[in-house]
Structures are given as structure tokens and as C-alpha cells.
């Protein structure tokens, strides 16, 4: 890859330290993975405000609720897959109480690589986005990660799920980029079809768009980091202006980005939607980047899918 890559979780840990310096109310919890999630960077700087709860995620989530009920701004981290066992604690103690707890998980998706299927969560977006009061963000790179962490701390008091990864991802945003809530970012304009993605798949989509261009297909590429709430206007605009949408995500095609895009398109502006993602299957061990090819989620696969979406006959008459 030509663009430089940077670790999202490293960006998270460092941003936490900046928050800790300017806000004594920030507390951070982890469940024995702080050297991996990088919350350990905060823990080293602010040992009094860092709580390692051990391999006890239920304890971590309920304690996070108690701290938030006492006026703290709480960040709680572990691997995304392990947070899922506390779905009900998150539901009852955090979301129902509507508390200022930010769940920032790392090692989501298949980019966990060698650790294999047990650690590759591909259902988490759906699980979390289904919760009332919960917002879900999938930062596309380290720049957006820092900005999102600042944003949720500075401007929000409700629960958030922020999905980070093990691998370094290509930096797509300029250094001065600031996350705007609910707004997607169009990295490349185009009128033949729109590729809507989140996470590392956006950088794949940009590479695919280059190849598509050489084949005479002009693809729009949208970074939809805000899964819930979603930028409905951008989705509808893509549907109405191109009539063809391809969604790409490092997640199940069920209940993730693609499903939500399809819901909006179905409700507001029927158009072709094809979803790329994990197709009702578990992941497996392998090098992260090999896995994308194995599961047909690599750049050539996106190019092929985009071509077939582009060639498919439109089934809907344009309304306008």
C-alpha cells in the first residue's frame, strides 16, 4: 500500500492521555488487555484513574455504569469479541440508565488474523447498534480515531460503541480532519455507482475505484464511519444519483453497515444494493491481508462486485 499506515489503538491510548490531562473526570477501565488495547498508556500516566478489572468483563461493564452514575466520564476497553458477553450488562446497566460510558474495543473483525475465528468478531456492530440509546462509530483511520475520541468526550454524555482493530490501517484523512457527528465523508466522487464502506474496507474501495476508473466505471467512495445514527442524506443521495450501491465492511452482511444502508434505501429511495462482508460464516486463522482474499473481500473482489452491480439492469425507475 502506498499510503502510510498507523495504529488506531495506539492513537486511542495516546488520545486518552490528552483527555486525562485536561479532564480529571476521565476514568478508564480494562479487563486484562490494557497492553493490547493500549489503555495501558493512560494507566501508566494516571494510575489512580485506571482500573484493571481482571478477566471479568461483566464486572468491568457494571463498574463502568456505577462510575458514570457518579459523574465520571468513562472509557471501557477490551477486545471487541469479549465485550459481547456483557451485552445484557450494557443493555440494562448502561443503555437503560443512558450513561456516559464509551466502549472502545479493539481487535474487531478478521484483521485479528492468526488468533483465528474465536477472536474475530463480525457480529458486534449489529449487536451494539440494536441497543436503544447506543451510538456506533467505526473510525476509518488513526486520524479519525483521535477525532472521534475527542468528540465523544467533549460533546456527548450517552453510551457509544467505537470499533477499533489490531492492524494498522492506511491513513486516509488529512491531519486536520475533524469528525462531524452523523456525517459521512465522500473520499472520491463518482456517478456510476457508490461504494459505501467503513473501516479498512474504505481504503480497499479507494484502490478498487482506481481500477474501475481504468475500466471506464466512475465509482463514488463514501466513508460511513457513523453506523448509528447514519448519514441518511448521503445514502439517499447515492441511491438517487447513481442508482447502484455496493457496501463493503469487515463484518457480517447481517445487521451491519450494509443492512442499515439497505434499510434506508428500501425506505427512502429504492435502488440496487449489493452487500460485501462476511456471509454468515466464522473467520479463520491466517495473515490479516490473506483473509480478505480468502473471504472474497479483497480489492479484486470489490472491483468484480462493482462491475457486476454496474452491469446489472436497474429494477427501479428513477423517481425524479
Amino acid at each position: 500500500m502506498e499510503t502510510k499506515s498507523e495504529s488506531l489503538r495506539e492513537a486511542y491510548g495516546n488520545e486518552l492521555v490528552s483527555l486525562g490531562k485536561r479532564d480529571p473526570n476521565v476514568v478508564v477501565l480494562d479487563a486484562d488487555l490494557s497492553s493490547s488495547t493500549r489503555t495501558g498508556i493512560f494507566g501508566k500516566e494516571f494510575p489512580d484513574r485506571f482500573f484493571n478489572m481482571g478477566i471479568s468483563e461483566q464486572s468491568m461493564v457494571t463498574a463502568a455504569a456505577g462510575l458514570a452514575l457518579s459523574g465520571k466520564k468513562v472509557f471501557a476497553s477490551t477486545f471487541a469479541v469479549f465485550l459481547m458477553r456483557t451485552y445484557e450488562q450494557i443493555r440494562q446497566s448502561v443503555c437503560y440508565n443512558n450513561l456516559d460510558v464509551k466502549f472502545v474495543t479493539t481487535h474487531a473483525g478478521i484483521t485479528v488474523g492468526e488468533d483465528g475465528a474465536t477472536h474475530q468478531i463480525i457480529e458486534d456492530i449489529g449487536v451494539m447498534a440494536g441497543l436503544p440509546h447506543m451510538s456506533v462509530i467505526v473510525p476509518v483511520d488513526a486520524v479519525e480515531t483521535r477525532s472521534v475520541i475527542r468528540y465523544v468526550h467533549d460533546f456527548t454524555v450517552t453510551p457509544y460503541y467505537i470499533r477499533l482493530t489490531r492492524e494498522k490501517f492506511p491513513v486516509l484523512n488529512d491531519a486536520d480532519y475533524e469528525y462531524v457527528p452523523r456525517k459521512s465523508v465522500t473520499f472520491k466522487d463518482g456517478s456510476d455507482l457508490a461504494i459505501i464502506g467503513c473501516g479498512v474496507m474504505v481504503s480497499f474501495a479507494l484502490q478498487a475505484a482506481k481500477e474501475l476508473k481504468s475500466k471506464g466505471i466512475d465509482a463514488r467512495v463514501i466513508n460511513m464511519s457513523s453506523i448509528k445514527p447514519m448519514d441518511r442524506e448521503a445514502v439517499v443521495k447515492a441511491a438517487s444519483e447513481t442508482g447502484r450501491i455496493l457496501t463493503v465492511e469487515e463484518h457480517s452482511i447481517y445487521n451491519g453497515l450494509g443492512s442499515r444502508v439497505a434499510e434506508i434505501v428500501g425506505e427512502e429511495y429504492p435502488a440496487l444494493v449489493h452487500r460485501m462482508g462476511m456471509r454468515d460464516t466464522f473467520g479463520k486463522s491466517g495473515k490479516s491481508w490473506e483473509l480478505f482474499d480468502y473471504f472474497h473481500l479483497g480489492v479484486p473482489d470489490i472491483v468484480r462486485s462493482a462491475e457486476s452491480v454496474f452491469r446489472e439492469e436497474k429494477r427501479f425507475e428513477s423517481i425524479s
Binding site: 456505577g66 462510575l67 452514575l69 465520571k72 445484557e88 450488562q89 440494562q92 446497566s93
Partner: peptide, 20 residues
Amino acid sequence: ESSTGSLGQGLGVGVGMALA
């Protein structure tokens, strides 16, 4: 102080309050 009803969670919430 906190909504409860699903068993097992209140003690953890209490831990958080005591830490605070």
C-alpha cells in the same frame, strides 16, 4: 440510583460508585 431487574448487576454498579 440505578435501574435494576436483571439479576447480578447491582453489586458491580455499587463497586463503580464506591470507586468514584
